[in-house]
Write a protein that binds this DNA or RNA. Structure first.
Lengths: 175, 175
DNA sequence: CAAACCAATTGCATTTTGCAATCAGTTGCA
DNA sequence: TGCAACTGATTGCAAAATGCAATTGGTTTG
């Protein structure tokens, strides 16, 4: 599962990067879920990735230049993973992918609300979101207040759906 | 490699559809290369798919509703494969994917000129291309003359690059 | 009538995946 | 201090997917 370079076609090479079942899931959880640690990615994703596969994919995505790894200063053995610009540039693709899936596949309502909001926001929202990610992961300066982020908007939409579908559950239902 | 439905997330479900190394390659060759027959797909793609995998993926894409299969009236054992609207709707994703690959991966110039033209054309060009595909594959009426198609434009761009890189080779160099 | 072509299928070795158990070191709490 | 919980992984193993070559039964072409 390294790169074969079967051909120099852009679509083929893109597939060689994330044409598997887990790489994009990991990037999705980092981009939309804000996950930065091994354990968060391991336990947090709905799909249940195995730890050996997660370790392998993190390594591979680092080799490919999509992620970087740094020691977490608050915990001697904690590693913190960051997106590179190469990974942040996937946001429009993920937005289109989510929009396509919402139309053509049996998605669940709770999990597709984010895709819907992102689709409605269009390229301007994608650009704002990419700026936020650059701020979080690359240390780029940002003038967006923390409570007005795209991620907060998406999360609020998700929680509204969950609350509406399970009215007795209160407001603590977070996946 | 059927669908597991690990979760109802649109991105996850999309990955379950074409999160492998061949499905999207086949769709690329049908969409951009105009391939409709088993042999064309088998011999025509640069990446060299094996016939058993091609057969498996064609079957799978049909089960998923991305392709249909019909007998070719001109040849009793020839099958002709057609894209469905579900597959044609992937054009914007393929355009973004090509654009991303062109920036971040070691693509070859000949093979990325199509992606570049498609990116420059933007959504209006994608829409025209999707209409052409509907005309070819779904029998939808079309008012575009055959010599002004997006596919012809992309092919002309490709041939111009090939001719420029190998000036002595004449105009018969087609992959 | 033979050679080429058609869409697959079969057999088999290699690779990848998924799962569970485990690892050594670190931290939080009593 | 002692011990459980947590950290990012690693190992072993069975099952599945892949890649390759050969083959199949039928059709068309020269």
């Amino acid at each position: 599962m390294r790169i074969d370079r079967r051909s120099g076609c852009p679509i083929n090479l893109s597939l060689e990067v994330f044409g598997d079942r887990w790489s994009l899931i990991i990037l999705r959880d980092m981009i939309f879920g804000g996950k930065r640690h091994f354990r968060d990615l391991l336990n947090g994703s709905l799909e249940g990735i195995a730890s050996n596969i997660l370790a392998d994919r993190l390594k591979r995505l680092m080799e490919l230049g999509m992620l970087t790894r740094a020691d977490d200063p608050t915990h001697k053995q904690k590693a913190i993973y960051s997106l590179t610009e190469m990974a942040i540039a996937l946001v429009p693709i993920l937005a289109h992918l989510g929009a396509w899936g919402r139309v053509w596949l049996p998605v669940s309502e709770e999990l597709s609300i984010r895709a819907e909001l992102l689709e409605k926001g269009g390229p301007p929202m994608w650009d704002r979101f990419m700026d936020e990610l650059r701020h979080e992961h690359l240390g780029t300066p940002s003038d967006t207040p923390p409570d007005a982020t795209v991620r907060a908007t998406l999360q609020a939409g998700y929680e509204a759906v969950v609350a509406r579908k399970a009215p007795g559950a209160g407001c603590d239902a977070v996946a």
